[in-house]
C-alpha cells in the first residue's frame, strides 16, 4: 500500500476525478436543462426530453422566449423589486440581528436567557402557518408618510421588508460566533473606556466577516425566494417580486419555453452572484464555527 507505483497513483487520481465529475453532473444537469430549454420553442423542448437532446442547444435555437417573456410580464421590474427588497432587508437584518447577538453574547441583563430561548423557539414557526394572522397585524399598523399618518401597510415595499428585519436563525448564528470570540478583546476595550456600542462597531463587527457572509447568504436566499407572503400583500404590479411574477407564466396554455426563459432570468443573477463570491461563501460558512 505504502509503496505505490506512479501508474497506480495516476489511476487513483483519475478515479477520484471521475467520481467528482460524475457527482457534479448529478448536481448540474437540471440547471443545464433549464438554460438549454430556454432557447427552444415549447414543442421542441417537450419532445427533446426523450433523448440527450434535452441537454444540447440543438434544433431551433433562438432568444425568442426571452423577448416573449418581456412582452408577457414586466420582468425587469420584478427582478429589480426582488433585488431591492432583498438587499435592503439583508443589510438592515444583519445590523439588527448582530446587535441582538452582541447583546445576548456579551451584555448582562435581566431575563436574557429566557429571551434567548423565546427567540430560538420562533425558529420553529414556518411563515406559511402564521401568514394570515400576520396579514391582520400589518394591516393595522401605522406609517408616517407624505400625508401624515396612514393606516395599513399593504401594497408597499415596507410590508415585504420590515417583518423580516429580524429572524431567529441569524440572531442565533451571531450569538454562536460571538461566544467563541476571545473575551480579552472586550475586556481590553472596556479598560480603554469604550462604550458597548463602540465595542460592537469598532471591535467585534470588523472581525466578524465569516458569520456576516454566512448570514447574508442565508437571508438573501430566503428573501429572494419568498412567494406566499408577497402574493398576499402586493396588490399592484409595481411592488411584485420575481416569484409572484412567475405566476404570470402559468396560463391556460403554459408556454414552457417562456417559463424556462423566465426561470433562467431569475436564477442566473443569483447563480452569478454566488459563483463570483463562492470561495468567500464556502470558506465563510466553513469557518463560521457553526459547531453546535
Amino acid at each position: 500500500m505504502s509503496s505505490r507505483t506512479p501508474e497506480t497513483r495516476a489511476t487513483s487520481l483519475f478515479m477520484r476525478y471521475a467520481i467528482l465529475v460524475l457527482v457534479a453532473l448529478i448536481f448540474v444537469f437540471p440547471l443545464v436543462f433549464m438554460l438549454v430549454s430556454s432557447l427552444k420553442p415549447s414543442l421542441q423542448l417537450l419532445s427533446d426530453t426523450s433523448s440527450i437532446r434535452a441537454f444540447l442547444p440543438v434544433g431551433n435555437i433562438s432568444l425568442d422566449n426571452y423577448t416573449a417573456s418581456f412582452a408577457r410580464a414586466p420582468v425587469a421590474l420584478f427582478i429589480f423589486n426582488s433585488i431591492f427588497i432583498t438587499s435592503v432587508t439583508v443589510v438592515l437584518n444583519l445590523v439588527i440581528c448582530s446587535m441582538a447577538g452582541f447583546s445576548f453574547a456579551f451584555l448582562d441583563w435581566k431575563g436574557k436567557d429566557v429571551m434567548l430561548s423565546v427567540v430560538i423557539a420562533t425558529l420553529i414557526v414556518p411563515l406559511e402557518t402564521i401568514a394570515i394572522p400576520l396579514l391582520l397585524v400589518v394591516n393595522n399598523l401605522p406609517w408616517v408618510g407624505l400625508h401624515g399618518i396612514e393606516w395599513g401597510w399593504l401594497n408597499s415595499y415596507r410590508v415585504q421588508i420590515v417583518p423580516f428585519l429580524s429572524d431567529a436563525l441569524t440572531v442565533f448564528l451571531f450569538v454562536q460566533y460571538f461566544r467563541d470570540l476571545p473575551r480579552d478583546l472586550i475586556e481590553a476595550a472596556r479598560i480603554d473606556g469604550a462604550s458597548w456600542f463602540q465595542i460592537y462597531a469598532k471591535v467585534i463587527m470588523p472581525i466578524s466577516g465569516p458569520v456576516i457572509a454566512t448570514a447574508a447568504i442565508l437571508r438573501f436566499l430566503a428573501m429572494y425566494n419568498q412567494y406566499l407572503w408577497p402574493l398576499m400583500v402586493t396588490q399592484s404590479e409595481q411592488y411584485r417580486p420575481v416569484m409572484v411574477g412567475l405566476q404570470y407564466f402559468f396560463q391556460l396554455n403554459t408556454d414552457w419555453g417562456q417559463v424556462m426563459a423566465y426561470l433562467s432570468m431569475i436564477t442566473v443573477p443569483v447563480l452569478a452572484f454566488y459563483l463570483a463570491l463562492q470561495r468567500a461563501f464556502i470558506t465563510s460558512i466553513a469557518s463560521t464555527g457553526i459547531k453546535g
Partner: peptide, 23 residues
C-alpha cells in the same frame, strides 16, 4: 385597471378582503 395572474387572483382578493382593501 390592476391585473393579477389568474392562479393567484382569488387568493389576492381574499387577502384584500381580509384586510378590507378591495377595489
Amino acid at each position: 385597471l390592476q391585473a393579477f395572474p389568474q392562479i393567484a387572483y382569488n387568493d389576492a382578493i381574499t387577502a384584500a378582503a381580509v384586510a378590507g382593501k378591495l377595489p
